[in-house]
Design a protein around this nucleic acid. Structure first.
Length: 111
DNA sequence: CCACTGACTACTT
DNA sequence: CAAGTAGCCAGTG
């Protein structure tokens, strides 16, 4: 059985809507373990297929794709663009626009 | 059970 | 800006 943090992290990842992204650290924080970014990366690496995760919606804290070219980078970028996410000139995603902060952000912006 | 690994991050040189 | 480093810690074999 998976431990609590892992299960919550998987939930968080599955909860990222189309057209939005989250950082590894962000997912870890929402799952209850700030600083657990590395575990999140590990989860995606090892379990994205088995648990059918929208793995492409998780990027690093600088707004860039962490995968290396020819090792998923292009695929991830294509998937994100197909959801309407835009990249800047140097392949950076503007977190101020696309970052999914969960329901809290939704509520704040609805006002 | 133990060691290894990892798509991270913030901070310091 | 680039490079190094110390935390991070659970799935996997």
């Amino acid at each position: 059985m998976l431990n609590l943090f892992t299960r919550r992290a998987l939930q968080v990842i599955k909860g990222i809507p189309e057209g939005k992204v989250m950082t590894y650290g962000g997912v870890a924080a929402l799952a209850g373990k700030p600083g657990g970014a590395r575990q999140v990366s590990r989860l995606l690496h090892a379990m994205s297929e088995k648990y059918d995760l929208p793995w492409h919606r998780v990027i690093n804290a600088r707004g860039k794709i962490s995968l290396k070219p020819s090792h998923g980078y292009e695929l991830q970028k294509a998937l994100l663009e197909s959801e309407g996410i835009g990249f800047t000139r140097d392949d950076t995603i503007k977190l101020s626009i696309y970052l999914w902060d969960g329901v809290f952000r939704e509520i704040i912006e609805e006002k």
